[in-house]
């Protein structure tokens, strides 16, 4: 039987993308626990396999064999849909991320926009899950998620608009190609476009932390005040899928920071560019994200909103105006 090669390519990339997202989610949990352990002068998981490397697989089996409890009083449809709504857009975002010059599932002309569009569905999933749970903690958490995401989407998008003004394209592949040839070509050091580029990177990184609900901005989960926030009523793999979605979103955020500011697969010294450089930069950023989580305590909710509306948004708008002026003058 004749099968279109395009179909085979589609299937291969589909399986690859899903496997990449799932494996990352599983092993980032391991990384998180190990890193947390060492930061707190413990060892972290060590019993299952060498260095506890098989721990995520065992955890996965444990979560899958647990009963999926749908408590009485919840909205059963929304309760079941919500984890899927968090996970699927995260996986879809991987489709357009270029890992190297050739390794990309679909090189969209507006890939940058595609990722932000899919990421915006994430909030909807959390909201539906939280409201469907009909739980006080979950509803408080949902209200927080929305105000937090609205507040941090603005500086993030303004920063990205600044970047698009410099690059003149929303094609992620072309954005990386413009930054080839050593670290002084990367957008983070693109001082000829704007002297504030490192600040823009910092804003993007902070917004990424807030958008993925990571500490110190994990107001949605906030286990010390809200039990587990939106996830309070979830058990077994329902909770597991939420968790995987969160880690997949962190991977996407770190990938975006790598592509937009750190030159993607470009080597800092111009030697052997390739997918390994992309992964090194991405995992370094993820390491930093986890590092921050176990170093700083959670902020207060007003502190979180003040940081965005009073500091990040004015600075990002100033950068936008400065960049457009510099681009016009020089």
């Amino acid at each position: 039987m004749h099968v279109d090669p395009e179909i085979i390519r589609l299937l291969a990339f589909l399986i690859g993308v899903i496997a990449f997202a799932a494996l990352n989610a599983a092993y980032l949990v391991w990384l998180e626990r190990k890193e947390a352990g060492h930061i707190q002068r413990r060892i972290g998981p060590k019993e299952v396999g060498p260095f506890g490397l098989l721990q995520p697989l065992v955890d996965g089996i444990k979560l899958m064999t647990k009963q999926l409890i749908v408590p009485a009083g919840v909205d059963p449809v929304l309760f079941r849909i919500a984890p899927i709504l968090v996970m699927v857009p995260a996986i879809m975002s991987f489709v357009t991320i270029p890992f190297s010059e050739t390794l990309v599932a679909r090189n969209l002309d507006i890939g940058l926009l595609a990722i932000f569009a899919f990421a915006s569905v994430n909030v909807l999933g959390l909201l539906l899950g939280a409201w469907g749970s009909r739980n006080k903690y979950a509803v408080i958490s949902a209200a927080r998620v929305v105000s937090q995401n609205v507040a941090y989407e603005i500086p993030m998008l303004v920063t990205v608009v600044t970047l698009v003004m410099i690059t003149g394209t929303m094609n992620l592949h072309n954005i990386v190609m413009q930054q080839q040839g050593g670290f002084w070509h990367w957008n983070i050091f693109n001082f000829s476009a704007s002297p504030l580029m490192p600040v823009a990177f910092l804003i993007f990184f902070v917004c990424m932390l807030a958008e993925t609900n990571r500490a110190p901005f994990d107001m949605a989960e906030a286990e010390s005040e809200l039990v587990a926030g939106a996830f309070t009523e979830y058990s077994g793999m329902g909770f597991g899928v939420f968790f995987m979605g969160e880690y997949a979103n962190i991977v996407i955020g770190a990938s975006m920071a790598t592509i937009l500011f750190l030159g993607g697969w470009d080597c800092p010294f111009g030697l052997f560019p390739g997918v390994h450089w992309f992964l090194i930069k991405m995992y370094f950023l993820i390491f930093t994200v986890i590092w921050i989580r176990w170093t700083y305590p959670r902020t207060t909710f007003y502190g979180l909103l003040n940081l965005s509306w009073k500091i990040l948004i004015p600075i990002s708008f100033f950068n936008l105006i400065l960049t457009s002026a510099m681009l016009k003058v020089f």
């Binding site: 926009l113 569009a117 909201l127």
Partner: peptide, 16 residues
């Protein structure tokens, strides 16, 4: 993509 970003990501969230 704008349909997803604005209508699903913003309008629906606001309505909820």
């Amino acid at each position: 993509l704008m349909q997803i970003l604005i209508y699903v990501g913003a309008v629906c969230v606001t309505i909820i």
